[in-house]
């Protein structure tokens, strides 16, 4: 709050009201409902529900399918996060270094930020078309029959590829802006001290980029968990079957298609705890970042 703030009472209340009403109705209410229904078992035909305590959670923790999906989500998130960060960092370092055409490269490398995830999934579906997909043909050259939607690993790879493609631009933008904020004097000093470009990168640039990297790490994990929904849904064509899926997709499938409200809500609550932990971790990192730079 500003020291010299206004002292009117009714106006600020009036200004805050729209925001407060919207979050009360569309944030707090649904969140409470999710918490509550995670302790109930709904009748599949919609005739009431019975309190079952922690049964829904116990079912999840002992369910083999849930374990399988949880481990896939972890592997998927690690792969997507690692590759989108690594590729973006390489491109940002190069784009920061060159003089000619820097702006053109920047545009070419960042526009995919605006592409919706399901479109990325749609492109993957075409790329991996069974009979004529360019990437299917590419794998065919090595005598590998690529089967998206049938083979678990093939489908998973298509999802990872589309997710990385979609995420590289965001990371690129942040890394580039992080690189450009490294003071000239620091770069020049490094240039005098250390002749090898590789050495300069690991000793000077990389540590200075670490705060950006930590921050992006959280952003990328959150992206892999939640924003890839559209990619997963298009790649499996809405029919998960035995195909790989993420935890968020499972919430949707169980709750919306399977009408298992209690189980789906318990899954939501588990995800809530996960995001909460990630976000708190992120806020603490941002606090520390101020001391870094």
């Amino acid at each position: 709050m500003k020291r010299a703030g206004f002292t009117t009472v009714s106006l600020p209340v009036f200004l805050l009201l729209p925001q407060l009403v919207i979050i009360a109705v569309f944030f707090y209410w649904p969140t409470v409902v999710a918490l509550q229904s995670s302790f109930y078992l709904q009748d599949p035909f919609g005739f009431g529900s019975t309190f079952v305590g922690l049964q829904n959670y116990a079912d999840l923790f002992t369910s083999r399918e849930y374990h399988r999906i949880a481990s896939f989500t972890v592997v998927f998130s690690v792969l997507v996060t690692f590759f989108s960060l690594a590729i973006a960092l390489l491109l940002a370092v190069k784009a920061d270094k060159i003089l000619r055409g820097a702006k053109t490269y920047r545009t070419l490398l960042m526009w995919v930020y605006a592409v919706a995830p399901p479109v990325a999934g749609f492109i993957a579906v075409i790329m991996f078309n069974q009979s004529w997909g360019p990437l299917t043909q590419f794998f065919g050259m090595f005598n590998y029959t690529y089967l998206v939607g049938v083979n678990f690993n093939d489908t998973a790879f298509a999802m990872v590829l589309a997710s990385v493609w979609k995420q590289v631009p965001v990371n690129f933008i942040f890394f580039l802006s992080g690189l450009q904020s490294i003071p000239r004097s620091v770069r020049e000093a490094a240039l005098i001290d250390n002749a090898s470009a590789m050495g300069r990168f690991w000793d000077v640039t990389f540590p200075l980029l670490a705060p950006t990297g930590f921050f992006l790490l959280i952003i990328n994990i959150t992206y892999s968990l939640f924003d890839t929904f559209g990619i997963v849904d298009t790649v499996v064509k809405g029919e998960p079957g035995n195909n790989p899926m993420t935890l968020v997709y499972k919430v949707y499938v169980d709750g919306f298609r399977g009408n298992d409200l209690g189980g789906s809500s318990a899954q939501s609550v588990i995800l809530m705890v996960l995001v909460l932990a990630l976000t708190i971790f992120q806020f603490r990192l941002i606090d520390r970042r101020i001391h870094y730079t």
Binding site: P30, V33, S265, M272
Partner: peptide
């Protein structure tokens, strides 16, 4: 995010 309370 909205995704974790999508059904309610």
């Amino acid at each position: 995010p909205l995704e974790v309370r999508i059904l309610p």
